[in-house]
């Protein structure tokens, strides 16, 4: 038994020996690589998937030697990943809440986040509209299968705000009836789109921008007075190894070129 503990000790020493030099070497390699090809890692809200895929390509073309890598997920997932130590250079969130949380946690410098686009909500149905929805009020029809994003997901939270506003227009009890029809709370907006595309759900509430990539879906527009203004902030992360490159990427998004791509994918530009 004694031998076992000796090995345990040796093993622990081995582990600590591995750890020290590794952490000392990595940053210097990154610094000396200033003229080498660079990789920019962007964590972006799932709703940005199509637009950023295109922007990534045009940005790479405009900046030779730069590779842009994306991690698309619900903004709340990305925020958690960054808090748990994921390496990223830029974070683009679908709401200010997740960005503020990162500012509080010192992952993003205060006041460095900028709003780079605005998004709105829309009601979507499968191409054959199996439940025959015509108006927003039909969302309260009993037996409807509605899919929303979880309230922790930006779009899920926006949807609840929108239902509150609709209740004021349509009548008391509307929101509760709609929520009683919810069969699943998905983890990001693209999952909601997928469930509706497959025809498993009768309706879902997603961003207007999501319908650009899925033109076959039927949709019911939501009047401006009931809709929400979803502001998307973007910022370079404090722990970024390419802070300058991150700023260049953000400036590109805010440029006329960047904004026109965003507009093409259904977002409202801020400039």
């Amino acid at each position: 038994m004694k031998r076992f503990w000796v090995f345990l000790l040796v093993f622990a020493l081995m582990l600590s020996a591995c750890g020290v030099p590794a952490s000392a070497v990595v940053p210097s390699v990154a610094l000396s690589a200033a003229s080498e090809p660079k990789t920019l890692t962007v964590f972006a809200a799932a709703s940005l998937t199509n637009a950023f895929d295109e922007i990534g390509k045009t940005f790479e073309a405009a900046n030779p030697g730069v590779t842009v890598k994306f991690n698309f997920a619900g903004s709340q997932t990305l925020r958690t990943q960054i808090e748990q130590g994921a390496q990223a250079d830029v974070f683009a969130s679908a709401n200010t809440k997740e960005m503020d949380a990162l500012v509080t946690g010192n992952f993003v410098a205060a006041d460095s986040a900028q709003i780079f686009l605005i998004n709105q909500l829309v009601l979507i149905m499968p191409a054959n509209n199996p439940a025959g929805l015509v108006t927003l009020a039909d969302l309260a029809d009993p037996g409807l299968k509605v899919v929303l994003a979880a309230k922790e997901v930006p779009v899920g939270n926006y949807a609840l705000q929108m239902l509150d506003k609709l209740e004021a227009t349509i009548g008391t009890g509307f929101k509760d009836k709609v929520l009683a029809n919810v069969v699943s709370y998905e983890n990001d907006v693209k999952q909601v789109v997928a469930k509706v595309q497959l025809g498993e759900a009768d309706a879902g509430i997603v961003y207007l921008s999501d319908t650009v990539a899925a033109p076959e879906l039927q949709k019911i527009n939501i009047p401006a007075e009931n809709n929400v203004v979803a502001k998307y902030p973007i910022a370079a992360l404090s722990h970024s190894q390419n802070p300058e490159l991150g700023q260049v990427f953000i400036a590109y998004l805010l440029s006329a070129d960047g904004q026109s791509v965003l507009k093409k994918w259904g977002f409202l530009p801020v400039k």
């Binding site: 958690t80 899919v147 919810v182 699943s184």
Partner: peptide, 25 residues
Amino acid sequence: TILFAGNLEGVTQTMPLAIYLGFER
């Protein structure tokens, strides 16, 4: 489960789903 059954507390939200979604909230 999350793909086929979705996620609704008490109906389809099993422990692994609650853990995965709890990870964020």
